[in-house]
Design a protein around this nucleic acid. Structure first.
Ligand SMILES: [Zn+2]
Ligand SMILES: [Zn+2]
Ligand SMILES: [Zn+2]
Ligand SMILES: [Zn+2]
Lengths: 529, 529
DNA sequence: CAAGGTCAATGGTCAG
DNA sequence: CTGACCATTGACCTT
């Protein structure tokens, strides 16, 4: 309808054109039935037509040519007398005659619409100094890169690592500076890889030309942070001068635009029924999992998340050309770390704070920058929460590490669901580093990435439909965190006890609060990643 | 040229229309009011409204646009400040602003329903004449093929399919006869993709040059088989002579693997009324899930699985050079199909038979061939079991299809666990078609494949540790099969009832049989894929 | 009537 | 610039 509308508006005499074209078509149709039953011919050049375009059966070439000519209002001049032959082979010899032919067969210029917005919202590479970026690239592709990669994921594996198969080792990609072995590459569990993708994509867009490089920079300190005794923050972590050296030159393209989630205005659909009330019935037995009853200071967590407080080191552009020389190092740090060590409070806001979803609830994370910081916040929240969970803190470092490394990805999704995170899968994928190669196998990767991102979205959506309450979130987190007690921990029994305690807590809570829904517990568990 | 087409199609009086439309907008502001009454105006763009859509008077264009945006969960980004004008001419210039306008006039996203199955009157008739089959083949390799593919997997998706992102579309493999779009390629959920990998690897190794092609050929008939009325075994199913032509030359190593799909199944919307009469909706008993109490004839299933009985067509090496020329074809057939139709027995061995794990339990599936056929058996067992499940049979075809397509991959893993399947991930990967490229991105794909295979192994191992009993397996299967009752089924309530019934059955069973382990139910559920 | 789907004819894309 | 290719649009049907 619209096109007709436009047509009518835009041109008065188009109708006669149309009628003429149509008459021709009818005549042609009947006459050609014999010779050209299925293969229509381009009326301009005689090539095989791909359909009707601008009113005339024509090929894609002539279609595009006509469109470009009209759009850009091009005029051509024939070097001959305007008698050039227009056929599939010679049609590009003379644009003037080709265009003439288009008009003579009644291609309708009014059918060419206005230019539209580009289909891809891909943002241009935003680096002001390409040279430096290239040099940075050269650095990272060298070998030291590999070593770091290996040392970072030494334990990010599932229980078994039967990677010793000789066949596989043959398959190692052996580019010059890129000789990672499979042993090194395959330690991510599927779900971890899944989340790493979400993570990675934001990192990539943030300007790190090498995803894994920045990814390492991000994940390593975060995971290791779990081993830091609570609140015994190491001041060196704050030092930016050193870390920039460690992680490479100060020459990434990342700009400091929208580093932080704008606080309140983003909560578009927030309607919480604030159930902070009678949940403490089960309290006495739950010292391991302080639940929502202890109302945390939400403001504190808010401050932390939004990085508006002085407690948080805010990245400061040192040089306009290098707005964020060490793009992530600051964020790795929990806010309190930059303070003098404090006595551990009994409960940290982070523990229950995720229920306060008002930071970026259903607000569409359309901005990639925003998604980046939000992902980061969520990941950090996972670790922070665990660090502050008394039961977790009491474990030995080795077990802590194993548990967190095994579950961080699941926790990530769980906390994302808790916050009602919303993101656009396609937009994400569009920014991933996967789209530059048209090798067939590239497709498989894209398929998988898409599916996994989509799966995360579905999990989030499913949780949203269940309207999980705060106690349930707490229990679910603990259930996940202590889920893999069978993976060679030192304190297997203790972790299993914690796991089951969380389980029982969840069950009793659901039974009491939702007595009509006997299956609620099961339903929740089924949703876990 | 659609506009010309439409215009012409619509007719003769177009000139008068244009005159009307040509009226100066400013001049006839008053008169315009009248027209607005007569023909309502699209509140979004101001075009002529075709009625109320999603709660708002709107034109067909805005209707379609809103529908697509919601369905695929699209998000747009305005290149301007979000101030673009949305009128009939410019509405396509900025999707972001158009969508914003849709929302601002209160188009209701909840009115957008789930995608339905494609209209079925589309498929070319399946003919008995071989000649026509060939012509059908020709069609299939070109564009109509895409259509078929689309219509086959219309619901193999998670709830959303935001695959329209333009960047992604660039990545499509565009060989001549292989122009699937991403919409078509990405309908597999992550977990389906995961299992498809297991599946695919065997297919690839079997010699199918085109993974997705053969994959489709394999999966399609198997899934559609679920729609075959129980025990109405069609003798033609066994006949292998004809159908190889349908799917391509006999030069593929798969040969007539796919031919088990009876002709009728290809016409998707076969009229089928549930033969079992009234659904036992109100029955409080557990007839829906005949569980282990009715002891099945295990020997029968054993016969089937081990392929040692005369009832089963056993693959026979035809040529030493091609030890398994038709590696899959025979296995597609459920054992009873090769028999004369039997009166439906109250319970089929398949239902509980998987508990008999002794066929290839801990035995290493070192042979790729064996892995191949075992995978297939398991996949077939999934479908067979579902087909013979009374509660499932009673559903309408559409719902059956949706459910099975959504869960087959999970069922695959579940049944694999039930059987104690063991395989060597590394060995698998070594045979996959992923290792020939040394592009860095290849690594990512390998990482993911490995992780996913490994994850399947872990699931299987975890189940093994729990020593799941037969009743539990049954319940778990049903829980999975009816898991996605919220995905736009026709009988949502019924399926949900079934789902919860399985749930309750499992709970009561666990409570009764394992009274000391109150968490057993939860533990089981947590293991589900 | 208002949901849904259909598919020709628009659009844009980007190696070549 | 060319043109093969894929996504998007929307007039027109079906349910
Ligand atoms: Zn032409
Ligand atoms: Zn000329
Ligand atoms: Zn409109
Ligand atoms: Zn705009």
């Amino acid at each position: 309808m619209k096109e007709a509308h436009n047509l009518a508006r835009r041109n008065i005499n188009s109708s006669s054109d149309q009628m003429k074209a149509r008459n021709d078509d009818r005549a042609n149709a009947s006459r050609f039935r014999n010779e050209e039953k299925h293969h229509d011919v381009c009326l301009v050049c005689g090539d095989r037509a791909s359909g009707r375009h601008y009113g005339v059966k024509s090929c894609d070439g002539c279609r595009g040519f006509f469109k470009r000519s009209i759009r850009r209002n091009l005029e051509y001049i024939c070097k001959e007398n305007g008698t050039c032959v227009v056929d599939p082979v010679r049609r590009n010899q003379c644009q003037a005659c080709r265009f003439q032919k288009c008009l003579s067969v009644n291609m309708n210029r009014n059918c060419v619409q206005h230019e539209r917005a580009p289909r891809s919202n891909r943002l241009p590479r935003e680096c002001s100094s390409p040279d430096k970026r290239f040099s940075y690239l050269d650095l990272t592709t060298s070998s030291s890169f590999d070593y770091n990669y290996t040392s970072i994921y030494p334990h990010l594996m599932t229980t078994r690592q039967d990677m010793s198969n000789s066949l596989l080792t043959q398959q190692v990609i052996s580019t010059k500076g890129n000789k990672k072995t499979f042993q090194q590459q395959l330690r991510l569990s599927s779900f971890q890889a899944q989340c790493a993708l979400v993570w990675r994509v934001s990192v990539l867009w943030s300007g790190g030309p090498h995803g894994s490089q920045t990814e390492r920079n991000l994940l390593l300190p975060i995971i290791q942070q779990s081993l830091v005794p609570t609140y015994s923050a190491d001041p060196t972590l704050v030092s930016t001068s050193k870390s920039s050296e460690i992680y490479g030159g100060p020459n990434t393209c990342l700009q400091d635009t929208q580093r932080h989630t704008p606080p309140q205005e983003l909560c578009s659909k927030r309607k919480r029924d604030t159930p902070t009330g009678q949940l403490e019935t089960t309290r006495p037995s739950q010292d391991d999992f302080p639940s929502s009853t202890t109302s945390p200071s939400l403001s504190s967590s808010k401050v932390f998340l939004t990085s508006t407080s002085g407690n948080v080191v805010v990245p400061t552009p040192i040089n306009p050309l290098h707005p964020l020389p060490v793009p992530f190092s600051y964020h790795v740090l929990p806010p309190l770390s930059s303070q003098a060590p404090l006595p551990p409070p009994p409960l940290h806001p982070m523990f229950a704070s995720p229920y306060v979803q008002s930071f970026f609830p259903l607000a569409q994370c359309s901005s990639f920058n925003r998604m980046t910081s939000i992902s980061e916040e969520i990941l950090l929240a996972c670790v922070t929460w665990a660090r502050l969970l008394p039961a977790f803190t009491a474990l030995n470092d080795s077990d802590k590490k194993i548990l967190l490394e095994a579950t961080w990805a699941e926790l990530f999704v769980l906390l994302a669901a808790e916050r009602g995170l919303h993101f656009d899968t396609s937009y994400f994928l569009a920014h991933m580093d996967l789209t530059s190669d048209d090798h067939p196998k590239q497709n498989q990767l894209l398929v998988i990435c898409y599916s996994q991102l989509q799966e995360v979205k579905d999990i989030i959506q499913s949780f949203r439909l269940l309207t999980v309450d705060m106690t349930e979130w707490s229990c679910l987190r603990s259930i996940v965190l202590f889920r893999y007690y069978a993976r060679g921990l030192k304190s297997t029994a203790e972790v299993q006890r914690l796991h089951e305690k969380a389980h029982l807590t969840l069950m009793s809570h659901c039974t009491r609060v939702y007595p009509t829904d006997v299956l609620r517990t099961n339903r929740l568990l089924l949703l876990l990643p």
